[in-house]
């Protein structure tokens, strides 16, 4: 927090604050505080060394440590297979971008349908509710298997049997249900008085939604939505069971060739490379938004 005592000094309270020198009590207090800070820093350093050092010692001196590093951290082999894993990872990224976009659109439509009050939309409201109930309640792996193997089994003309497309569809089906619920909960948290204020300004139902309710709702659900995006990136790996060559599948192929698990570690590293910055970015954008609008606006 900024304290603006100094900067406003030349205006109203100018004389008083420029004349002010800290009292003996305050100087004493500052000395005690800085002593306490120094002591706390020393304690923190010692305790960190003790805990992490002990853990590292236990790990390194354990009898299986050598074989563990050989099977999981064979760096030269890792570097050798890395291009293939990266190539697979591109599939994950592409899948995330396509599925993420589709999920945002469908999720929003579903959430708006469920929160609408228009009598004409009643059947859609019922269908949306059933959809969410069903697809939120089935494990995603099952959906992937059902879509991935079920749709080609129908042997219908014109339906694709491309596993990548089918896998993406399965991911979209499941995540739409989750995201719709997150957005809906955001819409419901916008206080009715905001709606009343907008309506009494003559804004129509749709305008109220578009300019007043949704901006506030989406801002509130940004952290859980980005949380879902991180999950989505990871869960795209599940389509590998259909035979899609994503990062996990590529790593699996590489490791089964040499009975070395380093490719898996490489794949894990690639996922972290994307998910950690994304999490940091989420925190950053949220903090910015809160600073701009003050904390209360998000309450």
């Amino acid at each position: 927090m900024r304290i603006n005592g100094e900067s406003t000094a030349p205006q109203s309270g100018g004389r008083a604050s420029s004349m002010w020198t800290p009292s003996q009590f305050e100087l004493n207090r500052r000395r005690i505080r800085s002593e306490q800070n120094r002591r706390n820093a020393i304690i923190a350093i010692i305790s960190t060394f003790l805990v992490l050092g002990t853990l590292a010692t236990i790990l390194i001196t354990s009898p299986g440590f050598k074989s563990l590093t050989d099977t999981f951290f064979a760096w030269s082999y890792g570097v050798e297979v890395l291009p293939k894993v990266i190539l697979g990872f591109c599939t994950n990224i592409a899948l995330t971008l396509i599925a993420g976009t589709a999920v945002s659109i469908f999720g929003l439509v579903l959430a708006l349908t469920r929160t609408s009050r228009s009598p004409a939309l009643t059947p859609f409201r019922i269908l949306a509710t059933i959809y969410v109930d069903v697809f939120r309640g089935i494990p995603m792996l099952l959906i992937i298997l059902l879509v991935g193997f079920g749709i080609p089994a129908l042997r219908l003309q014109g339906l694709t049997s491309n596993v990548l497309v089918l896998g993406t569809i399965a991911v979209v089906i499941t995540y739409t249900a989750y995201v719709a619920e997150v957005i809906r909960s955001g819409i419901l948290t916008v206080h009715p008085s905001q709606r009343a204020a907008a309506r009494s300004l003559g804004l129509s139902n749709v305008q109220t939604l578009r300019h007043v309710v949704l901006p506030q709702a989406l801002r509130r659900v940004t952290p859980p939505l980005l949380n879902d995006l991180v999950s989505l990136i990871k869960d795209t790996g599940l389509v590998s069971i259909l035979g899609v060559t994503d990062a996990i599948r590529a790593a699996q192929i590489a490791s089964s060739r040499s009975f070395n698990y380093t490719p898996y570690v490489m794949a894990a590293g690639l996922f972290l490379l994307v998910t950690i910055p994304l999490t940091r970015l989420t925190d950053h954008t949220m903090r910015k938004a809160m600073e701009r609008q003050n904390a209360q606006g998000l309450a």
């Binding site: 008085s193 905001q194 009343a196 204020a197 907008a198 009494s200 300004l201 003559g202 804004l203 305008q207 300019h211 007043v212 901006p215 506030q216 801002r219 609008q293 209360q296 606006g297």
Partner: peptide
């Protein structure tokens, strides 16, 4: 009709100017 509420009900995600111009622009 204009209505002013006990609890203000300004839109927290809009600046003062945006709050005021919302209805003239869109309505």
């Amino acid at each position: 009709l204009g209505m002013v509420f006990q609890s203000f009900n300004l839109f927290p995600h809009m600046s003062v100017l945006e709050n005021i111009t919302l209805a003239p622009i869109h309505v």
